[in-house]
C-alpha cells in the first residue's frame, strides 16, 4: 500500500475543504472497499479524510412519513431497523443479501453506494482497464465478463455496479443529500450513478470533494409489499448475477402501481421504467409480468459470455412480481 496522510475533520465543511484542496484525496467511511482497493494499488490516495464520525449514523423520521438515513449508518443497523423492515422490506432484504455479517457492521450506507465495481480487470493493476486507467482498453469485452453488464454498457466499459442496497433505493425513488465545494444539493438516486459512456472512470455524478451526508427514502405505502430477490452463484456471500427490487400494488386483480429496479445488469442500478409503464393499470397476470420484463430487456446487448443474464433477469423479475401478487405461475 502507498503511504498516505490521514486526517479527521471536525465537521462536514472542513472535510469538504480538505478534499477540495487535494486532488488525490479520498473520504474514508467504513473502509471495507477503499482499504481493499488501496491494498490492491487500485486506489492510491495521498490523503484520507475520515468522515465516519461527521454525519449521522442513525435513521430518522421525516415529516412526510419517509426516513432519513444518516450517511454513516452501518449497513447492519439499517437492515435491522424495524421501520425499514416494515415500510421498505426490500431495502432490508437487499442489505442482508450483500456481503457478510462482519462487513455489514463496518460498511456505511453512503459507502455502500460508492463502492467500486468488482470487475476482475478493474481490480487487477497488471491488466488494462478504462475505468482504472482511462484509454488503456477494456479486456472484459473479449475476456471474463460472465457477471458484467447487459444493459447500457459502452465499448469502453461493461462493468456493473455491485451494490444491492442501491438497487432497492432506485426502486424507492430515494434522494441522496450531499455537501460539496459548491454547497448542498439533492440528487435522485437514479441519477447518482452514471452509464459508462466514454468516461467509465466516473462512477457517479458527484464532484471531487462532494460528500454524501444522508439518504432520504420517501413514503411509499405499498412498498410494505416489496421484495428484493438476488440470484447468484452461491446461496450467500456472493455478488449478484441478477437482482430485482420490486414493490407492487394490486387491487381487484389490477396493477394500481409498481416500482421495479434491476441490479447487476448495468453500470448503475437499472430502474425499469418501461416495464412499470406497461404494467400500470393492466391485469396482474403472469403473461403480463413476463411481457413487461421482456419489453424492458429488449434493450439488452449481452456479450458472448453473459447472454444467459437476459432470460435470467426476465424470469427473476416475472417470478418476483408473481410472488408479490400472490399468484401462482400461469
Amino acid at each position: 500500500m502507498r503511504p498516505f496522510r490521514y486526517l479527521r475533520a471536525t465537521d462536514v465543511s472542513e472535510a469538504v475543504a480538505l478534499l477540495a484542496g487535494t486532488p488525490n484525496a479520498a473520504f474514508l467511511g467504513g473502509g471495507t472497499n477503499l482499504v481493499d482497493l488501496m491494498k490492491l494499488d487500485v486506489a492510491t490516495p495521498e490523503l484520507l479524510v475520515d468522515v465516519r464520525r461527521l454525519t449521522s449514523d442513525r435513521v430518522d423520521e421525516l415529516p412526510d412519513g419517509g426516513l432519513r438515513i444518516g450517511a454513516a449508518t452501518p449497513n447492519s443497523d439499517l437492515a435491522a431497523d424495524p421501520r425499514v423492515r416494515r415500510r421498505y422490506p426490500m431495502l432490508s432484504q437487499a442489505l442482508l443479501s450483500g456481503a457478510s455479517g462482519q462487513l455489514r457492521n463496518l460498511a456505511t450506507a453512503a459507502g455502500n453506494l460508492l463502492q467500486r465495481t468488482r470487475c476482475v480487470y478493474f481490480q487487477d493493476v497488471t491488466t488494462p482497464c478504462n475505468k482504472r486507467r482511462p484509454g488503456t482498453g477494456c479486456p472484459a469485452v473479449e475476456g471474463h465478463h460472465r457477471g458484467l453488464a447487459i444493459l447500457g454498457a459502452s465499448p469502453a466499459c461493461v462493468a456493473t455496479h455491485p451494490s444491492d442496497f442501491a438497487v432497492a433505493l432506485a426502486a424507492l425513488d430515494a434522494v441522496v443529500r450531499t455537501t460539496g465545494p459548491d454547497g448542498e444539493r439533492s440528487i435522485p438516486l437514479v441519477d447518482l450513478h452514471r452509464l459508462p459512456g466514454d468516461e467509465p472512470q466516473r462512477d457517479t455524478v458527484l464532484r471531487h470533494g462532494e460528500l454524501i451526508t444522508a439518504i432520504d427514502v420517501p413514503p411509499l405505502p405499498f412498498a410494505r409489499r416489496s421484495r428484493y430477490r438476488k440470484v447468484r452463484d452461491r446461496a450467500s456471500y456472493a455478488f449478484a448475477l441478477v437482482s430485482v427490487a420490486a414493490a407492487l400494488d394490486v387491487r381487484d386483480g389490477v396493477v394500481r402501481d409498481v416500482r421495479i429496479a434491476l441490479g447487476a445488469v448495468a453500470h448503475k442500478p437499472w430502474r425499469a421504467h418501461r416495464a412499470e409503464e406497461l404494467l400500470r393499470g393492466g391485469p396482474a397476470r403472469a403473461d403480463r409480468f413476463r411481457a413487461a420484463a421482456e419489453a424492458e430487456l429488449a434493450q439488452a446487448r449481452p456479450l458472448s459470455g453473459n447472454a444467459f443474464k437476459v432470460p435470467l433477469a426476465r424470469n427473476t423479475l416475472t417470478r418476483t412480481l408473481l410472488d408479490l401478487a400472490g399468484e401462482s405461475p400461469a
Binding site: P74, Q102, L103
Partner: peptide, 19 residues
C-alpha cells in the same frame, strides 16, 4: 481475522488502526 470492535464482529484486515 474477525475480532469484536467496540462489541461488533468485523474483519480486522480492512479496518485501519488510525481510524
Amino acid at each position: 481475522c474477525t475480532i469484536l470492535l467496540d462489541g461488533r464482529r468485523v474483519n480486522s484486515c480492512l479496518a485501519l488502526a488510525v481510524a
